[in-house]
């Protein structure tokens, strides 16, 4: 791990929260981490809870009864929102990393063509798409259910 030794993460966890001298996308990065941590926590428990279906209807019903009520419903909704953001932002990150449709990296000098003309609009589109998914989820969770 020579890289991390040479550039220690001096700010630690607090470094995740501030935008610092990075662009607005830095906050998307923070949100990607937070949603990722939330999703993985949910997922590990989700595997255990839903595996009860293999034991038959009674075991399934018992498992579902323990994860019911308003608290779990709100939690599930938050998981959906985290999914919506993490998925769309993940597409954005993959496109930028692989250079698909956004071009290769250039030197970050004025007028910041790639960052401002390509990556920023991409971030806006990603957020809009996540918002559309969030609205669909909100309707499904709270209006149509």
């Amino acid at each position: 791990m020579l890289e991390t030794r040479a550039h220690p993460n001096r700010l630690g966890i607090w470094g995740w929260l501030g935008g610092g001298r990075w662009g607005a996308e830095r906050y998307l990065y923070t949100l990607h981490r937070l949603t990722g941590l939330g999703l993985v926590t949910y997922f590990l428990l989700h595997i255990l809870v839903t595996s009860s279906r293999a034991l038959g209807p009674e075991a399934w019903q018992q498992a579902m009864n323990t994860v019911t009520g308003p608290v779990f419903k709100v939690g599930e909704f938050l998981v959906f929102l985290a999914f919506a953001f993490h998925a769309v932002n993940g597409i954005r990150l993959a496109l930028i990393e692989l250079g698909f449709g956004v071009g290769g990296p250039i030197e970050p000098i004025y007028p910041y063509r790639t960052s401002l003309d390509v990556q920023r609009p991409l971030a806006v589109v990603a957020l809009l798409l996540a918002a559309v998914l969030a609205v669909m989820g909100t309707l499904n969770f709270w209006v149509l259910d």
Binding site: E76, F80, F83, M136, G137, L139, N140, F141, L144, D145
Partner: peptide, 10 residues
């Protein structure tokens, strides 16, 4: 999975 579970009414 999310479509089946959480967008089933839409």
């Amino acid at each position: 999975h999310m479509t089946v579970m959480h967008l089933d009414k839409i």
